[in-house]
Amino acid sequence: MAEPGHDALEVITMDLQGQTFALEAVHVREILDLVPITEVPGAQPFVAGLINVRGKVVPLADLRLKFGMEQTADTIDTRIVVIEIDVDRVPTVVGIRADKVHEVTTLDATALSEVPRVGTRWRQDYIRFIGKHGDDFIVVPDIARILVSGAAEPANEAPKHDRSSATLALARPGEH
């Protein structure tokens, strides 16, 4: 895995509620159009769905709930990015819901910076880096940590915590 200052990071960029996120390309297996989603009663809200990916039953994670975002309806651009990542050292295939998927790109090492101590409205440990790509700020979330937190924490804890850390310092690049 690339660390800032050492290497460039190859990523796939995607949108969630107008904010650009990037998933490390090494984890990404495929990108799917929206498929029928089966609800799992009793599961945590941010992983409340199951999808069929080539005969495998795969949980679908909605990061919007972890970042305190509104859940708007699916559009024609909605995609599922299927990633494979170690959750507590167990390789796990997870689908990540995206409002829109842009491109595969390289985040330059110099464009990556550590998460500023203050000034984000999100839980710091959910974010690996923040990068700049053109005029956009790109957030590289720490998916593994988000998923582990999902498996360990009580369901209602995370979103509340997110919303309580207030100010929005990340300049929002013009809405898409």
Partner: peptide, 27 residues
């Protein structure tokens, strides 16, 4: 039968999932 992933370890009412003829998932 397909087992559920770790992310659904706390779900008690279901022992697994399966894929139906139309490709959708059933618990």
């Amino acid at each position: 039968i397909k087992s559920l992933s770790r992310l659904h370890a706390e779900v008690e009412m279901f022992s697994g999932a399966t894929i139906l003829g139309d490709g959708s998932v059933a618990l």
